[in-house]
Design a binder for these strands. Structure first.
Lengths: 145, 145
DNA sequence: ATAATTTAGTTTGAAGTCGAGATATCTTTT
DNA sequence: AAAAGATATCTCGACTTCAAACTAAATTAT
């Protein structure tokens, strides 16, 4: 019984290490481009998914509402996105990536992908597929009684 | 090959999600006990590995030197650890867990383990073993527990 | 219609983390 | 033994993030 708990604990530890190790590399590279990881995540979301109400940005990249304003302000100051009022619902503000923002992502995203690919490439394609299947199950909302 | 890159990217995403999902739960529980995750990590280190020079704490749980002072101050204020000068090298200060600190860890660590076990139990024992093997390869060497 | 509730976004204050520099001590070199 | 270099801790300022309080607008219930 106890060894099962230890197995879970060990999985937690290797999961944490793996995540932190990868993330450290990735963040370092992003920051070298003058953005912090949150800014990059927002900009990438806008690039790949189109304009978003500020509210939804928080939901999609797991960001507290207080942080959204700050990050969007920063990106707006840098000229990488614009705010635009929603005509139907005046409470809503959209964040829209600018041309400069698009160029920026287009310039650094391929490197970003390549870096992650390199870091993940200690696993074979098959191992990656297995890892994806297993990790998918972790952290999914579990039905409560 | 582009699909290979996508596979790596997907692995990165599910890895991030899994980590964040688990971590969010764990942190919430730790904070409910009046500590933040870093404080808990330091205290647990001292409990399981005995007294440590401040410097080494930073190395082991990945913390900048400026942060160590802060966290150790906090734990000292709460009476969970003490500082003690090293007799041989007067530059060195040890952090030593107090009896109160020990009681604290003994009171909450079993819950902590059980919580992680519950969160990880969406995987079978065999799947966990597979996940551990794969994740070990990503990032750094592991030794703990 | 008007009041109550909910939702969207912002502002503010606190907490945590880092990095650079300051200080003290130890070690090595000359 | 003095100078130079390395190491450990602390201090301070900047940055990021969050939570809670707040404003404004939309929705609903009466």
């Amino acid at each position: 019984m106890n060894s099962e708990v230890n197995q879970s604990l060990k999985l937690f530890i290797v999961l944490s290490r793996a995540y932190k190790a990868i993330n450290e590399q990735v963040n370092k590279a992003i920051q070298a481009n003058g953005l912090n990881p949150t800014e990059f995540a927002v900009l990438e979301l806008l690039y790949h998914k189109g304009q978003q109400p500020l509210q939804q940005i928080g939901g999609k990249i797991l960001l507290a509402s207080g942080s959204i304003t700050y990050v969007v302000d920063k990106l707006e100051q840098k000229g990488l996105l614009n705010r635009a009022a929603c005509p139907n619902d005046r409470r809503v503000t959209y964040a829209i990536i600018t041309d400069k923002g698009k160029e920026f992502i287009e310039a650094i995203f391929p490197e970003h992908e390549a870096r992650i690919h390199e870091l993940m490439d200690v696993l074979s394609e098959e191992e990656k597929a297995t890892a994806i299947e297993l990790l998918k199950k972790i952290g999914l909302p579990v039905a409560k009684y």
